[in-house]
Amino acid sequence: MWIYLTKRIVGLLPLLLVISFLSFMLVRMAPGSPFDKERAPASPDIERTLREKYHQDEPLWQQYLRYLGVARESDGQGGTRWVRGGLVQGDLGPSFKYRNHGVNDIVAQGLPVSMSLGLLAFLFAMGVGIPLGIYTALRRGQWGDHIGSFFSLLAFCIPGLVVGPLLIMGLALQWRLFPVALWSSPWHMVLPTVTLGLYFSGRIARLMREGMTEAMKEAYVVTARAKGLSESQVVFRHALRLAILPVVSYSGPLLADLLTGSFVVENLFLVPGIGVFLVNSALGRDYNMVVGLALVYAVLLVLLNLAVDLTYGFLDRRVKLS
């Protein structure tokens, strides 16, 4: 088990290297530069100084090595020394756009907020999706199933882009039940959570319904029934363990997706997470920010997938991690 964990985490390193290399090069291929401005600087020297300051005047390969923190630079006394910071030391570099912040600062400020929102939305999606899926599976073909399935289909079909403004119009502007935006109290978190989680609750309900329907046909369920267990014991102690596996494997990437923030929801409700930066840094050609956020996202995705695999072993004892 620990060997397995170590292997997976060590395997992360080459992946991060590839991702950092690709995003580093791709973002530089886009036309325009971080230093293009609506108002030209007072003299062309100023832009040149900025380029030097951020080492944009060096050849690309050297910039990349510097980003990794494995380049050597002149120490000003005729010798050379290792560059300070860099990815190897966990430093994602300065932001080209926000001149008083490093990428680390912005991730440190925004990621906990995005993660809170993501986790709340995840819990909401699970909390609504799993019971709804189980209910519709057990009432298959009856009215309850039709209504429940219609709801999950609806949730699944309407994007947050539509749900958010509708919730704001009804619950925040019309009835004033919740604040329209900002992120300063639990009360402020309700609408963004629902907006972000609703779509996934629909998906989870559908996965859960299929999983449960299949599980109920399994031989061990028949055995459990034959033992004389009550229906709820059959469903929750026996069938659920297997039925939930599709939801579990979906939840890893889903959680990574939710935790790294959503541009639409963060923008709509003014949630100070990193989702907004994920999009705007690319538009603003904030090179370090683009690469840094891609790496953060990759690490989260890999770790959460790992958590999913571990959860598999825990839920289905036929699975062994090796």
Binding site: M1, A307, L310, T311, G313, F314, R317, R318, V319, K320
Partner: peptide, 17 residues
């Protein structure tokens, strides 16, 4: 990635989770 059987893994897994 997934292969067969071992119940002894579950305790550390539970801890990790």
């Amino acid at each position: 990635m997934h292969s067969v059987v071992s119940a002894s893994t579950t305790a550390p897994v539970r801890q990790f989770l």
